[in-house]
Simulated assay, not measured.
Amino acid sequence: MSTSPSALATELAFRAKFLRIACLANIVLFVLLVGGGTALITTVARATGASTAAGDEKDIRAVLDAQVIAWNKGDLDGFMAGYWNDDQLTFISGGDITTGWKKTKERYEKRYKADGKEMGKLVFSDLHVETFSPNAAMMRGKFELTFEKEKDDAKKTARGRFTLILRKTPDGWKIVHDHTSAEEKK
C-alpha cells in the first residue's frame, strides 16, 4: 500500500496540530492542578479547625483592641504584648527603621514616656484585614493620637496610617512588621 505525498503531508499536518493541542492541554491541566492543590491545602487547613478566615480576623482585631486599651491606660508593656518579642521585629516610621522588640519598646518609651511626656489617647479606625494563610496576615488602618497637655492645637492630635504584617505564633497573632506614617501637619 503506497501513500501519496499529499496524503502523507495531510497526516503529518494533522499530527502536528494534534500534538500542539495536547501540549496546550497538558499545560492547562498542570496550572489547574497546582492552583487547585494550593486551594485544597488551604481549605483543608481551615476545615480541620487549624483556623478560619473569620476567626483569624477576629483574633487579629483583638490584638489591636488590646493595644488600644493598654495604651490608653498608660500601659506600654501591655501595648507591646501585641508585638512579636523577637530581634527580627521591624518598625518603620518617620524614615527610620527600628529592629527588635526591645529597641522598639525603647523608641516608644523615649517618645511617649520620658521627661513628663504623655502617651495620649489612641484610636484605631478604618481597619482592613487580609489573611494570606492560616499563619500570616496583613492589616491596614488609621490611627489618631490625642494629647491633653499640648497647648498648641497643631500638636494636640497626631494622625496617620499604618500597615502591619502579623504572624500566628504559639502565643497567638503577633505584629512582626509595623510601618506607620504620620499625616503631615497642615
Score class of each variant (00 low, 15 high):
37 G>A: 10
72 N>H: 01
118 E>F: 08
171 D>W: 11
86 D>L: 01
18 F>V: 06
103 K>C: 01
25 A>Y: 06
182 A>L: 09
109 E>L: 00
179 H>W: 04
112 Y>K: 09
183 E>A: 06
56 D>Y: 10
114 A>E: 13
120 G>S: 03
77 D>C: 08
110 K>F: 10
123 V>K: 00
79 F>W: 09
119 M>E: 13
134 P>S: 14
22 A>Q: 08
73 K>W: 03
179 H>R: 12
166 L>V: 01
181 S>W: 07
57 E>N: 07
120 G>C: 06
145 L>V: 01
57 E>K: 01
120 G>L: 06
128 H>L: 12
22 A>W: 02
155 K>H: 04
24 L>K: 15
38 T>F: 10
97 I>E: 02
67 Q>W: 07
158 A>W: 07
58 K>C: 05
146 T>L: 10
6 S>F: 14
160 G>D: 08
53 A>C: 11
90 T>C: 09
13 A>D: 14
51 S>Y: 06
172 G>Y: 15
133 S>H: 04
110 K>S: 03
7 A>V: 08
95 G>Q: 05
65 D>A: 11
172 G>P: 05
72 N>K: 03
55 G>T: 14
90 T>P: 09
139 M>N: 14
139 M>T: 06
10 T>M: 04
184 E>H: 13
163 T>Q: 06
93 S>V: 03
85 N>R: 08
81 A>T: 09
19 L>V: 15
125 S>D: 13
17 K>P: 09
44 V>Y: 15
98 T>V: 11
116 G>D: 14
54 A>W: 05
121 K>C: 05
80 M>Q: 09
152 D>H: 02
25 A>P: 07
142 K>F: 02
68 V>Y: 00
100 G>N: 10
146 T>M: 02
61 R>W: 07
54 A>D: 10
160 G>L: 13
128 H>D: 04
179 H>Y: 07
121 K>W: 06
149 K>C: 07
118 E>K: 12
75 D>K: 02
140 R>A: 12
89 L>I: 04
93 S>L: 02
68 V>E: 04
11 E>W: 13
88 Q>C: 05
21 I>N: 13
91 F>K: 02
32 L>E: 03
15 R>H: 11
26 N>R: 12
16 A>H: 01
140 R>M: 15
57 E>W: 09
104 T>W: 13
159 R>Y: 04
179 H>S: 09
11 E>V: 13
166 L>K: 11
128 H>V: 15
17 K>F: 08
40 L>N: 09
41 I>P: 02
148 E>S: 03
107 R>D: 00
66 A>W: 00
117 K>R: 07
58 K>Q: 09
10 T>E: 14
8 L>V: 00
158 A>M: 13
127 L>A: 08
86 D>N: 15
21 I>D: 15
128 H>F: 11
67 Q>C: 10
68 V>D: 00
113 K>W: 00
159 R>W: 09
174 K>Y: 02
166 L>N: 14
